[in-house]
């Protein structure tokens, strides 16, 4: 991402290369080995043979945030854990994606009123791409979240200017000149 977002115009050959890279990236999402609470059990079931997340190229959890593209946050994030979640997210390299899995992570869940040390949704700490609600979500729900994330990753442009970013750039140039 970064400077490459605005590097080249959105024309045929550039777009073709971009589509190819996007296809490669969305087909090899590497999630991070990370689990907090009971939703992590459900997430392990998704990785395992019955549901087999590897069909979508996302079945190889990496042991370090520096090799990961995706952090699935499965389980209640409390004040003590939030610091660690944020540090792990900060250690990931761009482009990075976040899936919030479960009711607690999407907005506090059962701890929303009387949870004295619960962060009411991990989106208070790190930006979230996909919310998967449920307590815990079915494995199919998490797989649906991964598929939606694949669509989003495939749409992200590497070389060509994204439409919105291009418009912002044009506006900035118009304002400067």
């Amino acid at each position: 991402m970064g400077i490459l977002n605005h590097a080249l115009p959105n024309i045929g050959p550039v777009k073709a290369v971009d589509t190819a890279i996007g296809w490669g990236r969305k087909s090899s999402i590497w999630p991070m080995t990370f689990g907090i609470a009971c939703c992590a059990i459900e997430m392990m079931a998704v990785y395992a043979a019955t549901f087999d997340l590897d069909r979508f190229g996302a079945g190889v959890p990496r042991a370090t945030p520096r090799q990961s593209d995706l952090i699935i946050v499965p389980g209640t994030v409390n004040a003590k854990m939030a610091v660690r979640v944020k540090r792990l997210y900060d250690q990931m390299a761009e482009p990075r994606y976040v899936i919030a899995m479960g009711a607690c992570v999407c907005g506090g869940g059962p701890y929303v009123k009387w949870g004295y040390n619960t962060v009411k949704g991990v989106h208070k700490i790190i930006p979230v791409d996909i919310f998967v609600p449920g307590c815990p979500p079915r494995p199919e729900a998490l797989m649906d979240g991964i598929l939606k994330l694949r669509d989003q990753v495939g749409r992200d442009a590497v070389f060509a200017r994204r439409e919105q970013a291009g418009k912002e750039m044009d506006g900035r140039y118009a304002a400067a000149s």
């Binding site: 506090g108 004295y116 989106h123 208070k124 700490i125």
Partner: peptide, 25 residues
């Protein structure tokens, strides 16, 4: 926190703990 007259914190060490808190980023 399990005392009946405990007053709930709004944040802890910069981590927001309220439902209507502004996200950190």
């Amino acid at each position: 926190p399990l005392r009946k007259d405990y007053s709930y914190p709004s944040e802890h060490g910069g981590i927001p703990l309220e439902l209507d808190a502004v996200p950190m980023y």
